[in-house]
Design a protein around this nucleic acid. Sequence first.
DNA 1: GTAAGTTTCAAACGATTGTTCGAACAATAA
DNA 2: TTATTGTTCGAACAATCGTTTGAAACTTAC
Lengths: 213, 213
Amino acid sequence: MEVNRSDTATRILEVSELLFVEHGFEATSLRMITQQAEVNLAAVNYHFGSKDALFESVFMRRFTPLISACLTELDAIEAKGAGDSIEQVVMTFIRPCLALSRDPARGGALFVRLLSRALVENHRLLREALSREYSEFVERYTQAFRRALPELGEQDLSWRMHFAFGLMFNAFAGNDVLKIFRKSPVVTARDPEAIVQHLVPFVLAGLTMPASD
Amino acid sequence: MEVNRSDTATRILEVSELLFVEHGFEATSLRMITQQAEVNLAAVNYHFGSKDALFESVFMRRFTPLISACLTELDAIEAKGAGDSIEQVVMTFIRPCLALSRDPARGGALFVRLLSRALVENHRLLREALSREYSEFVERYTQAFRRALPELGEQDLSWRMHFAFGLMFNAFAGNDVLKIFRKSPVVTARDPEAIVQHLVPFVLAGLTMPASD
DNA sequence: GTAAGTTTCAAACGATTGTTCGAACAATAA
DNA sequence: TTATTGTTCGAACAATCGTTTGAAACTTAC
């Protein structure tokens, strides 16, 4: 009974992830999902209750492990006394994102796009769901950044975190605002390693420049 | 006849801009728009032809002037021989965005959010519409960046432009991925001047760091 | 084997979507 | 005035939406 449930339910989850990323939540109908997943239309409501709940399941399936992976990494570097290095702190976020991007089933890479979209759109379905885990995430990283960049005032720190995380989220999501019409397909090799290789120095340069206030 | 047309049509445009930003394209119904604009339901199809065409009108009304303002600024600094300064080049993009954000009717500030959403979502309605004006924009800025940062290879240049524009678009759009659950309302003062004051140094730090390849 | 419980299925539900239509209205020109 | 053109309006259109239902099909346990 658990085998079959998992079969249909995960097939729905995987197809939904793909379609939600591609077309967005509202533009993705249950009929598109169930058709592509080759399951009955009523299966979504049977297994998940509603379309809203399905979206939350799709999201949380990846989000929860990602957040806790970051916090675990943060624990690890603080335990070994590397918490003063801003590069080390940044890498605690980069590494789990990189792992997601390398997901052989490609679902993880898709999810990062879904995540960045959800954050930008401030999705109504995620507001309270996020506040549960996400607020701890923000709190922990604020402390970590403050410790690694002690010379910065609160204002500076807040702004730079804002820029740094926005940059990293969008980089992993592949949100290239310029690529759409670029002639030379230089960047289009979406190799996650290459992203990190250029992203991390860029972020660190902004984070470590002299304080302004 | 022109007066009345403008009256109804622009009321629709302005309400649509607000609602498209707030709820997204698909989740905004024509009945929401026409109700809030206090016009008849059929007015949208009469004045714009379809919901799709309405979205394109809403978008292009702001996008076209913004792009040409940037290119004009670019012409200006190149004419006065300041084209070698990467800060000057960056400011040719910042200034028109800042002007939009300061729009007293607030419509401009809303639009920057719509723009960033549209770019992230790769809106189907904008793909060919964008390619008309946007490709020149990308081309011109690629040249300008190459000239102002001659020590960078093509790879480096491409990546840094990607990061810089992503950062600037999202900053002006107010896409703060962390703000949602931040305790201290430090950043929430969405003063455009304050954004620029912190954004520009951050971007320049990443752009001007030593080459990697 | 029968019975209980779980999952699938086709069909339909009411609600809402974008769009169309023709009559009513307003404004301009002859 | 009358004729013409542009605009507004209420009503309806077919299509699609998320959801529900009750009966079939299947699995598991006794």
